[in-house]
Design a protein around this nucleic acid. Structure first.
Lengths: 226, 226
DNA sequence: ACCTGAACACCGTTCAAGT
DNA sequence: ACCTGAACACCGTTCAAGT
């Protein structure tokens, strides 16, 4: 994770030779965009806001970036493609899958905007994400999974990890008013919910998340490998 | 599910007595909003688009609905609150939880905008959703779960169900171009992924979803009840 | 060669005017 | 009593003009 090179890799961008020096770079703009989207949500990512952040006039952004949609594409690639999946050949395939998917989860926690982008109509692609898909499949194929079982397993693991990240970041973004809201409900209408308002806003513990992932892997393996 | 009454319940709205008859009702507006948001996504839900749909000028909407945010609130309540959870007292608590969470999944499939709303910074509340939370907790408390274990179990099940719905609807909305994209990749870079482009766009089978839910319930029960 | 303001078609919403 | 257009502060983006 955490490489400072933020741009997609398949985009050669030769440095300018002469003339006025550039005020910034596509990479810096993308880094600023990622920061805004992660901390304030995708809705806060505005061309005007972004221009402010990098100290440029709005229209100057278009010198570095073709369109806002392109920024979103690259954001998805960065948020989810920054992790390196290097299966440990001495480890169980179960451990390799587990480690990889925990990496995905951590990437989503580091970059909450990744979740919003995964939910968006636009598919999240890019070298990093595609490599991730490819490596996960390779691990499962090597373990004896059929293509269908392998994809179902990856989808199931992703679903869980996306769902957890989704719940956690939307909870985190909306401060603490959920507990107040529960406390304001009529106890006779919602007796069980109001009996313990604090429990509901509790974060899912890491060991529960990891246990669930391991159980999913086990279950899918049993089904796929008879 | 499927009641025709779409409004929240805690909002008494007395019928007008005299004067010009109303062109429409808050309920009809909400129904139209739900339709747009479900079929075209939350981003397509525009006050202007909504006004068109109900045959009103934009500003006339504000006679029925205080603000767009209020519409979104009610949308969440409708999308997720329309299901009736009535635990069968003759059945296992496991079956009751399973049935309820499958109901949630179906509600999310019927109303994809529910997913977008759950990911939004605004919490999804309303009588239906709160009752659902209350009933699920009650089932688990009765089974002997601690408040923390109960909430963790519900969160885990919700996470999975939200993640699956999220993946499925975003796949559905983006037509079929993901397969084309995979086919366009360089096989030497992504050998496993490109070997079977069709497998990736496959929908998660219902029995895999149900198996996963049952396994999660089992696992959490084992942990919570020693 | 790089940067930027005015302008356009959108968005939600206020407010005063129409019937 | 109900409906609605003009107007405002936003949004992404085009295009012509500034240095």
């Amino acid at each position: 994770v955490g490489s400072s090179q933020v741009s997609g890799d398949d985009t050669p961008r030769p440095a300018p030779r002469r003339g006025r020096p550039l005020k910034t770079s596509p990479d810096d703009i993308l880094k600023a965009a990622l920061h805004i989207a992660d901390t304030e949500g995708l809705a806060a990512l505005t061309m005007r806001r972004l221009a402010d952040e990098v100290g440029l006039a709005v229209m100057s952004l278009y010198r570095y970036v073709p369109t806002k949609e392109d920024i979103l594409d690259r954001l998805g690639a960065v948020a989810l493609g920054s992790l390196d999946i290097d299966p440990d050949s001495t480890a169980d395939w179960e451990d390799n899958i587990f480690t990889a998917i925990v990496g995905v989860y951590q990437a989503l926690r580091d970059h909450p905007c990744g979740i919003e982008l995964l939910a968006a109509p636009h598919p999240v692609t890019g070298a990093g994400v595609d490599r991730l898909r490819d490596r996960l499949l390779a691990i499962l194929y090597a373990a004896g999974f059929s293509p269908e079982d392998a994809v179902d397993t990856i989808t199931t693991l992703f679903a869980y990890v996306i769902g957890v990240s989704d719940i956690e970041t939307s909870r985190a973004r909306r401060a603490t008013d959920m507990q107040q809201y529960i406390e304001s409900l009529n106890p006779s209408d919602y007796p069980t919910l109001t009996a313990n308002p604090a429990a509901w806003v509790r974060a899912l513990p890491t060991d529960t998340i990891e246990l669930t992932l391991r159980v999913i892997i086990d279950t899918m393996a049993k089904r796929a490998l008879h």
